[in-house]
Write a protein that binds this DNA or RNA. Structure first.
Lengths: 166, 166
DNA sequence: ATACATGCAAACCTTTTGCGACAAC
DNA sequence: GTTGTCGCAAAAGGTTTGCATGTAT
């Protein structure tokens, strides 16, 4: 019998702040940590949760630090390239999660309500990487997504809705 | 050491043709297997590969059996509901694969060129379902997607492109 | 001056929908 | 006639881009 037990997912201690890591990344490319970028990276790392571009635009607008939609999208791309964020391409939108100071893990995604649940299972991590390698996929940057229907959605037979990410 | 060996994925013998299964499904709902729908289900099941809506529209148009974009999308939804097709929500589009007469399996998805590779690993199938169940996700309808970067993409450093599905 | 960033609006892409025309029973 | 389907064109939703303006060396 397989063991579905999943390990805890808790922050890894890192020496550099996300902001510093971002600044460093930008400097190497001859770019700058501007005001809007700093606001974004700080806001994003102020809470550990999944989010999307629209949420960011809304939150910052509501807190009086409005940043244009294009800047948000452009900065998100930079943060991904900098290794600070990871993209989760879901049903209709792209969600992001912290990819710095956080251990390797995988996700369950409810295709009905869009809920995302994180889990960490050593066995799956190993198998995932082994299968990837066996198929010539690069060893880093993988992420498993288990698509399914969560309990609340399979109870109610309502069709696809957009709910919050977790 | 984990074993990345994957089993062969070959057709399962089924008693009913996809077209018949579709007709049956439609009849139950008081709907009909019309001409465009028959053309679509036949075309889709004439080759075993992943495809998307746009490809279908293009292929049928090019072979002189043009079917409108809306009908294609509407029929794809029906085929999914009928259990004939399975959706793979990828980066920017939705790909489809046969879900009838084909064994349970998972996918590797290259987020750079959009290539999709199928694999079947017993251990992963078991773990996938165990973890899903442990998190209250419905036992059927799961699919793993390993996101990564395939060998040709990690060699060339070209950015995200849209290539063919496999 | 130069090099890069920003905001806006327009463009883009994929998918969905409203609607008038049409076909089957 | 009623019911359901089709194609068209428009709309919708998420994301990207062109461009003129602005800012820091």
């Amino acid at each position: 019998m397989v063991n579905p037990q999943t390990d805890e997912i808790r922050p890894i201690s890192v020496s550099e702040s996300p902001e510093d890591k971002f600044r460093e990344f930008l400097e190497i490319r001859g770019e700058k940590l501007t005001d809007p970028r700093r606001v974004l990276v700080r806001h994003i790392y102020s809470t550990h949760k999944h989010f999307d571009a629209d949420e960011l635009v809304r939150d910052l607008h509501d807190s009086g630090r409005a940043i244009s939609r294009s800047t948000v999208y452009r900065t998100l791309r930079l943060l991904v390239d900098a290794g600070l964020l990871r993209e989760l391409r879901l049903t209709n939108r792209t969600a992001y999660e912290h990819d710095y100071g956080y251990p390797d893990h995988d996700h369950l995604h409810c295709t009905s309500c869009n809920k995302v649940v994180e889990f960490r299972n050593e066995e799956i991590l190993k198998l995932r990487d082994a299968v990837s390698r066996a198929n010539g996929f690069r060893a880093s940057g993988h992420r498993f997504l288990i698509e399914g229907v969560c309990s609340s959605c399979s109870r109610s037979h309502s069709p696809r809705r957009r709910l919050d990410l977790i």
